[in-house]
């Protein structure tokens, strides 16, 4: 469903991604690990189509289409979802309105009718419960005054409502205690299905005890420098990234 070939991208004239290859088939869970500043968030932003992230080489095919030709909102409508490392706060726009606008937009692009308000409120409440976010968070401004963990759970809530085919979770585990981590992992696991794939970006092996990946990749210096099965995460935990960087030099 996703095929990234030799992707090169720069931010503010500085090249961050330096020839990245990655292929993801339907239903697979790929973990991407790597040191700070390796370019993990950059990869997510490039795939999601954020302004200011310039692709200078390579290609990305998503469901048989050239992803890089699509506007950010079209990518989302076609099933790509990025859970942000640092979700932004939007005071004055209620979470409920935001969620409905987003679900309606995605449904509309699939030729589906928008939910009625009543239907949607019911659905949103149900999903909030699943991510352990109290219902009154739906009435608050988007992420406004949410704790770090609440913001991450709000990202998961959006993911569940939008039902994307590719979910990129950018350090959704960072800053979470073990209970919150469990909630996030349960949320993700409940969404696993044969036609939904995940890229789980994480710093810690810890999350991968709960969300067991099919593949683990190490991103360093703007490319994938090592790939393996879930056991690779354990090696990284034990030995750090140093040995890989040495190995690849």
């Amino acid at each position: 469903m996703l095929s990234i070939k030799n992707l090169q991208a720069s931010v503010e004239e500085k090249q961050i991604l330096k020839g990245l290859d990655l292929t993801i088939n339907p239903g697979e869970v790929h973990a991407i690990m790597g040191p700070n500043g390796a370019g993990k968030s950059t990869l997510g932003n490039v795939l999601a189509g954020r302004d200011g992230y310039e692709v200078i080489g390579g290609s990305v095919d998503f469901h048989g289409e050239d992803l890089l030709e699509l506007d950010a909102e079209e990518r989302a409508r076609k099933g790509l979802f990025l859970a942000f490392q640092y979700p932004v706060e939007i005071p004055g726009v209620s979470n409920m309105e935001f969620l409905k606008a987003s679900v309606d937009a995605v449904r509309e692009s699939k030729g589906l009718a928008p939910y009625t308000s009543v239907e949607f409120i019911k659905l949103a409440r149900e999903k909030s419960k699943a991510v352990n976010l109290p219902a009154d968070f739906l009435k608050r401004g988007v992420n406004e005054g949410f704790s770090g963990g609440e913001k991450k759970r709000n990202e998961l809530l959006q993911m569940m409502l939008l039902e994307p085919s590719l979910c990129i979770l950018d350090e959704t585990d960072s800053g979470l205690d073990i209970d919150a981590l469990q909630v996030v992992a349960d949320g993700v696991n409940s969404q696993r299905s044969p036609d939904r794939s995940f890229i789980v970006v994480t710093h810690y092996q810890r999350l991968l005890d709960y969300i067991v990946p099919d593949y683990v990749h190490v991103l360093a210096g703007g490319k994938i420098v090592k790939s393996g099965g879930s056991e690779l995460a354990k090696e990284l935990e034990a030995h750090g990234y140093g040995w890989i960087e040495k190995e690849t030099v």
Binding site: A72, E73, I90, F98, S102, L162
Partner: peptide
Amino acid sequence: MLFYFLSRGISRAEAEVMLSFG
């Protein structure tokens, strides 16, 4: 903020209205 809307499939025009209103 604008990118947050776009990344959720909301059109730029609607995002601008929602943000201004907010």
